[in-house]
C-alpha cells in the first residue's frame, strides 16, 4: 500500500505543515499562508536533496 515515495512525502509534508501552522499562527489567513510556505519548503527541500544525493551510490 502506498509504496510511492513522492505520495508519502506529500502526505507527510501536508500533515506536518498543517499542525505547525495551527500551532504557530493565530488567525486563519496567516495559518494558510504559513502552511502553504511550509508545505512548499518541505517538498522543495526533499526534491532538491534527493537530486543532489542521486549520483552517490550510498
Amino acid at each position: 500500500m502506498m509504496a510511492s515515495h513522492l505520495l508519502n512525502l506529500t502526505i507527510f509534508s501536508a500533515v506536518v505543515s498543517t499542525v505547525f501552522a495551527m500551532l504557530l499562527r493565530p488567525d486563519t489567513r496567516s495559518r494558510v499562508r504559513f502552511g502553504l510556505l511550509a508545505f512548499g519548503g518541505f517538498m522543495a527541500a526533499a526534491l532538491v536533496v534527493g537530486w543532489i544525493m542521486y549520483p552517490f551510490p550510498l
Binding site: 500500500m1 502506498m2 508519502n8 502526505i11 507527510f12 500533515v15 498543517t18 499542525v19 495551527m22 500551532l23
Partner: peptide, 15 residues
C-alpha cells in the same frame, strides 16, 4: 489538530 494527527497515525499503522 485531531484530524491531522490521528490520520497520520492511522496511515502509519496501515503502512
Amino acid at each position: 489538530l485531531m484530524g491531522a494527527i490521528v490520520s497520520m497515525f492511522v496511515l502509519g499503522v496501515l503502512l
